[in-house]
Every structure is written in structure tokens, then in C-alpha cells.
């Protein structure tokens, strides 16, 4: 590990200031991703600003503003606490399921909401410094594009990067139209809709998100919705727990009679960002909640997939997973 300075921030303002002053500084939250990457020499900060003790971990109802009636999750709240909070369990069970589908109990106890959103790809070429990787070292090439890419993207990749984004939590947040609240060096607060938070790799795969250096995630806001009764997070993976998704689907429905009034679908494990399945959603709205409709929706979404050498199975798997997640959602999460 490279030598670095360590400062425990007293408050958000000083944390942001310390970071903004040094382009090579990083925030340290739970450390479950950053420290691993530092040990592997992938992340090379020369200063860590420990934000884990900032007073930004509360989960509370939103009383006014755009997301009135929704809830706000503190940027430094622990994943475990978010997943198990009564407000989350009652009103956003999809989010609770998604968080609990990720990592392990021990890691979730350390991991924070903000850190989770900013965790970096698990692409093995990104992780091994002896390998080429445009995300880690722009211009060196993409090791995975012609390499081992079973775990990689089928949507939205570019010739520069085929990595997938790993968070489960963010997939649910994408389906639920969350907003990421950040504070910048000039003291301003920005609200970034989650759909604009993540990026596709394009020519700049080194950028995972549109967050700017020095910006601190203070909260994640969830708007009020009517999905609590009919939502489901399905994660397909190589073992039953403690593995990243081959494909995951966050599905949320509002059904009246047997007609779908609203539908939200987001997918994980398929792209450089949580993949909102807008085409599938469009097909669902106004239709009857039947298997045939679900299949049509899934087909429409997966038709655009562009698999790589080793991940063609993700197209069929994505297709089936959308259908199953929707069925599970209709049944209130039960098979």
C-alpha cells in the first residue's frame, strides 16, 4: 500500500474542504471497497479523509420539497441499518431486499450508503495492475473486451470498457427513481436524479459517475410510491450469497384490478450502470399483468443486448429474470 495521510473529519464542511484542496485525496467511509483497492494498488490516494463519523447517517421521512412523503437515507448510514429500518422495510421492501442480496453480513455492517453507490467495478482486469484497463489507466486498452468476459456487460459498453457496475442497492434505487443529494466545495447542494448519476463508459471509462471531486454524498432520497405491495429484487448469481450478480432485476408494479398502472424495472450485472429497462416498462403500462405481457416486455428489452464472447447466456437469463421478477412482484414477493 502506498503511504497516505489520514485525517478524521469533524464535520461535513471541513471534510469537503480537505478533499477539494487535494486532487489525490479520497473520502474513507466503511473502507470495504477503497481499502481493498488500495492494497491492490488500484486506488492510489495520498490522503484519506475519514468521514465515517460524520453525523449523516439518519433515516427519516421527508417533510417537504420534491420528494415530500418519501424518505431520506443518510449518506453515511450503514447498509445493514438501511436494509432493516422499519420505514424502508414497510415502504421500500425492494430496496431492503436489494441491499441484503449484496455482499455479506459483516461487509454490510461496515458499508455505507454513499460508499455503496460509489463502489467500483469488479472486473478482474481492473483489479490486477499487471493487466491493461482503460478504467484504471486510460489508454492501456481493455483487457476484458477480447478476454474473459463472462461477468461483463451486454448493454451500453464501448470498445474502451465492457465492465459492469456491481452494486445491488443502486439497482433498486434506480427502479425507485431515487435522488442523490450531494454537497460541493462551495457549500452548494446538488440533487442528482439517479438516472443521471451513473455513466456509460464511452470514451471516458475512468469516470464511473457524474460526481465531481470534492462532492460529498450526504443523503439519498426516495420519492413516495405505491410499489411496496408489489415489488421484488431477483439476483441470479453463481452461489447463493456473497457473489456479484450474473443478472439482477429490481421490479416494481402498481396494479389496479389486473391492469398495470405503473411499472419500474432496473437491471444489474448487465451494464456499466444500473440499467433501467424503459422499453420493458413501456410495454407493461396499461396491460394486463400476465405472463405473456411479461415475456413481451422482457423480449423487447433484451432485443438490444450485445453480448461478448462469454456472456451470451445473460441475454436469455436476463429475459427469464425479468419475467420471474415481475411474477414474484405480482405475488408480493412470493413464488
Amino acid at each position: 500500500m502506498r503511504a497516505f495521510t489520514y485525517t478524521r473529519a469533524k464535520d461535513a464542511t471541513s471534510a469537503i474542504k480537505l478533499l477539494a484542496e487535494n486532487p489525490n485525496a479520497k473520502f474513507l467511509a466503511g473502507g470495504t471497497n477503497l481499502l481493498d483497492l488500495m492494497k491492490e494498488d488500484v486506488e492510489r490516494p495520498n490522503a484519506l479523509i475519514d468521514i465515517s463519523e460524520l453525523d449523516l447517517s439518519e433515516i427519516k421521512p421527508i417533510i417537504n420539497g420534491a420528494n415530500q412523503g418519501g424518505i431520506s437515507l443518510g449518506g453515511l448510514g450503514k447498509n445493514t441499518d438501511s436494509a432493516n429500518h422499519l420505514l424502508v422495510r414497510q415502504h421500500y421492501p425492494l430496496l431492503s431486499q436489494a441491499i441484503l442480496a449484496g455482499a455479506s453480513g459483516q461487509i454490510r455492517n461496515m458499508a455505507t450508503n454513499g460508499g455503496n453507490l460509489l463502489q467500483r467495478t469488479r472486473c478482474p482486469y481492473f483489479y490486477e495492475v499487471a493487466m491493461p484497463c482503460n478504467k484504471r489507466e486510460p489508454g492501456t486498452g481493455c483487457g476484458a473486451r477480447e478476454g474473459i468476459n463472462r461477468m461483463h456487460a451486454i448493454f451500453g459498453w464501448s470498445e474502451h470498457c465492457v465492465a459492469v457496475y456491481p452494486s445491488d442497492m443502486a439497482v433498486a434505487l434506480t427502479a425507485l427513481d431515487a435522488t442523490v443529494i450531494v454537497r460541493s466545495a462551495n457549500g452548494q447542494q446538488r440533487s442528482i436524479p439517479i438516472a443521471d448519476f451513473y455513466r456509460l463508459p464511452g470514451n471516458e471509462p475512468e469516470k464511473d459517475t457524474n460526481l465531481m471531486h470534492g462532492e460529498l454524498i450526504t443523503a439519498i432520497e426516495l420519492p413516495k410510491n405505491r410499489f411496496a405491495e408489489q415489488s421484488y429484487y431477483l439476483k441470479v448469481r453463481d452461489r447463493a450469497s456473497y457473489a456479484f450478480a450474473l443478472v439482477s432485476v429490481a421490479a416494481a408494479l402498481e396494479i389496479e384490478g389486473n391492469t398495470i398502472k405503473q411499472a419500474r424495472i432496473a437491471m444489474g450485472g448487465v451494464a456499466h450502470k444500473p440499467w433501467r429497462a424503459l422499453k420493458a416498462e413501456q410495454i407493461l403500462v396499461g396491460k394486463e399483468a400476465t405472463e405473456a405481457t411479461f415475456k413481451r416486455a422482457a423480449n423487447a428489452e433484451m432485443a438490444d443486448a450485445k453480448p461478448l464472447t462469454h456472456n451470451a447466456f445473460k441475454v436469455e437469463l436476463g429475459n427469464r429474470s425479468i419475467v420471474l421478477a415481475l411474477q414474484m412482484a405480482v405475488n408480493g414477493g412470493k413464488a
Binding site: R122, P124, Y127, E128
Partner: peptide, 11 residues
């Protein structure tokens, strides 16, 4: 090289 180098990749 092995691309499965940690217990997160080697299941």
C-alpha cells in the same frame, strides 16, 4: 494470468 484471484471471484 488467472482472472479469479480472490475469494470474491473464486467461489
Amino acid at each position: 494470468n488467472f482472472v479469479t484471484r480472490s475469494l470474491a471471484d473464486y467461489h
